[in-house]
């Protein structure tokens, strides 16, 4: 009995001793490693998982994606915890380039936002004349608790949503007091899922919607207006501010993403259902800064 126990003990210890030996090389094999802070929309829609191996074979760079909201991604870049960012809040991006936190900003691609909600559409959003009008109707319906689900995480989608509420004359502060307005602080796909469970309205990005719509009992109720246009941009953390960032890899990555090959790959990406999610729109003459 005693002997078997000692044997069991030894068996338990052997892997433990071997494990760090395996673990450490895995940690140090980070030669050409790029930490890309990106949005939950680009990850949840499957685009980045599709691009990673293509980038690896073209440039040798291992792209490590940390998916957070746009606000958090920009913060990561500012602190130097990300080498490059791929986000969607163009005005803010340009401002941060001007302030010197980022360099080499390029337009990469776009898609658009849509307003999704319950198929029964109790607030009658379908007949809206504009996104602001749709939001006014949602507000006017004075729905139950959790009638509208907000990302509430300082993401690009959240910023867009707040700007639309502002157009209806409602301040973010007064929204927070409304019981029907629910700030969930979650990523794109999870917010859709919460809206689905609550049969609520939400503003969401089309890419994630198309890749997840099969598992959701919701419908696009408002779409296609220029005010819902959603531009994605890429930029590198400024190596003069954060000297530990992998600037060379960031520039390689940006170069690939805006090359004919990179743009073609984005063009070709389809969801399993065959929907096209993002439209590449890099131009040498437009939308670039730093």
């Amino acid at each position: 009995m005693k002997r078997t126990l000692i044997l069991a003990l030894l068996l338990f210890c052997i892997p433990l001793i071997c494990l760090p030996l395996i673990c450490l090389p895995a940690a140090s094999s980070a030669g050409e490693r790029l930490i890309l802070a990106s949005t939950t929309s680009t990850q949840n829609s499957g685009l980045l998982d599709y691009l990673r191996p293509l980038i690896k074979s073209a440039t040798g760079i291992e792209v490590h994606v940390v998916a957070v909201g746009t606000g958090a991604a920009l913060e990561m870049g500012r602190r130097g915890d990300a080498d490059a960012v791929l986000v969607h809040a163009k005005d803010l991006e340009l401002e941060l380039v001007k302030k010197g936190y980022f360099v080499s900003r390029r337009d990469v691609m776009y898609n658009d936002f849509v307003i999704i909600g319950p198929k029964s559409d109790p607030a009658n959003v379908r007949g809206s004349s504009s996104a602001a009008d749709a939001f006014k109707r949602i507000k006017g319906a004075r729905g139950p608790r959790g009638f509208f689900v907000s990302r509430g995480d300082d993401s690009g989608t959240h910023k867009k949503e707040l700007s639309l509420w502002a157009k209806t004359g409602i301040s973010p502060a007064s929204l927070k007091k409304e019981a029907w307005y629910l700030e969930v602080g979650q990523g794109q796909a999870k917010t859709q899922r919460i809206a689905n469970e609550k049969q609520a309205y939400t503003l969401t990005d089309r890419g994630t919607w198309l890749s997840k719509m099969d598992s959701l009992d919701l419908e696009v109720l408002f779409e296609g207006m220029p005010e819902l246009f959603n531009q994605y941009g890429v930029m590198a953390a400024n190596p003069q501010r954060q000297k530990h960032v992998n600037f060379d890899a960031a520039m390689e990555f940006i170069k690939w993403l805006t090359s004919a090959k990179g743009q073609g790959a984005i063009e070709n990406y389809r969801t399993p259902r065959g929907d096209r999610l993002f439209i590449p729109n890099y131009k040498e003459t437009h939308g670039n800064a730093g």
Binding site: V66, R79, D81
Partner: peptide
């Protein structure tokens, strides 16, 4: 974090 005291080690993530 790279802007923290041990940032130079590049251990985050």
């Amino acid at each position: 974090s790279r802007s923290g005291p041990l940032g130079f080690m590049g251990l985050l993530y």
